[in-house]
Amino acid sequence: MKHIQNTEISYSELFENFRHPQSGAVVLFSGEVRDNNKGRAVTHLEYEAYEPMANKMISEILEEAKSRFKLNQAACVHRVGRVEISGCAVVVITGSGHRKEAYDANRYIIDRVKNEVPIWKHEFFADGTSEWGQNCDCISDDHHHHHNNHHYERAE
């Protein structure tokens, strides 16, 4: 499956194709573009990825989540290119026999995708400036710190 795409993500379609006779719980997370970030008005985002590697890493994360949480299915698709306000930037769907595993696995997948996979967000603001994003809010103790806690400051 291709996990990186430069066209609109149809999560309803992905969701429809996600039925599994052994799944009593299916969880869908959609990461969407907010019109503000840290008090600044955002007009749109543009995502860039090192695609072959991002695709491979998402595949591996999904496989790991499937065995770790005993999922019946797991899917993740991330956008590259321009995404408008309220557009879907990333979707994660997980299905398992009962809800706990589907919820836990969904969170596990999105956290790892955000922290580890070579995908970058370029935020465009209403004042005409732009800046490359950094994800790590360092609120949770258990996230993967692959960047040694050095934060990627404003590039503009």
Binding site: A49, Y50, I119, W120
Partner: peptide, 10 residues
């Protein structure tokens, strides 16, 4: 060599 800055997807 591919230089990979900190991820900021999602």
């Amino acid at each position: 060599l591919f230089l990979i800055p900190p991820s900021s997807g999602g």
